[in-house]
Amino acid sequence: MESQISTFTTKKGLAQMLKGGVIMDVVTPEHAVIAEEAGAVAVMALERVPADIRADGGVARMSDPKMISEIMESVSIPVMAKARIGHFVEAQILEALEVDYIDESEVLTPADLHHHIDKHAFKTPFVCGCRDLGEALRRIGEGAAMIRTKGEAGTGDVVEAVRHARTVWGEIRRLENMPPEELMAFAKEIGAPYELVKETRELGRLPVVNFAAGGIATPADAALMMQLGVDGVFVGSGIFKSGDPAKRGEAIVKAVTHYNDPKILAEISRDLGEAMVGRNVTELPESEQLAQRGW
């Protein structure tokens, strides 16, 4: 009875265990403890939340391994960390640190404009962003074990998260109604691997877990994304850029569990203090739109 370590089933499986949960961006061990106590299912360890990366400008890279390790030591829940798109050495370092998930993320400055990381080559599972079904299936084809719609990180504006989730689901619904002979042309049209297109059609959803990310700032935002059909949410700047992170974090956790119960949502949305200030995505110049990074 041989054991097989770190298979695609166990990689995908961890994401299945995170479903119905909230993954929170944290920049210190103290934040991580607040997140865990608020009920986060995992934390994303990074040096600056997306709103600060936006404000500071410059090149955004993988975080300091010392800071990531300190966060890993401070909590019992899974810890994720970000590598730049295409920067497979940053990913190798994160794997050596034994982080639980690697986010190949458009929030950092891309290291490769043509190629994403070959994620099959790693034992550590990856989550990647997408704006539509083709992008999601390309990432899964490269080995991603979890997908998140990109939204527009660091804005506190949920409009792009909604657009991306609706786009993915809309394309899946279109696919489900397609006769088999049209699948190859559809795969060509969206630039996705044929086998994954077929699998998505059979399942009626993506072959891996799909969270929402990018712009979620309130319990209502989180519940909106859940009602649109995602499996859980990432909240970046929305918690620790708000007036009362512990209270807001806890409320967003509860909103993801009770996303279909407006009475409970009304109760937990009360008196949360200031939400993050936010920036309207429609006022962002194209050069500042992070979701455009990657393909």
């Binding site: 009875m1 054991s3 298979t7 089933t9 166990t10 899974p78 639980d100 998930y101």
Partner: peptide
């Protein structure tokens, strides 16, 4: 941590009470 997650066949003798199939259980 996650990197050590694994799959393995496990003998669960009690399952004979519900199934004639006595193959080990593939546990994740």
């Amino acid at each position: 941590r996650q990197i050590a997650s694994f799959e393995m066949d496990v003998e669960i003798p009690a399952l004979k009470k519900v199934s004639p199939n006595d193959a080990p259980f593939h546990a994740i």
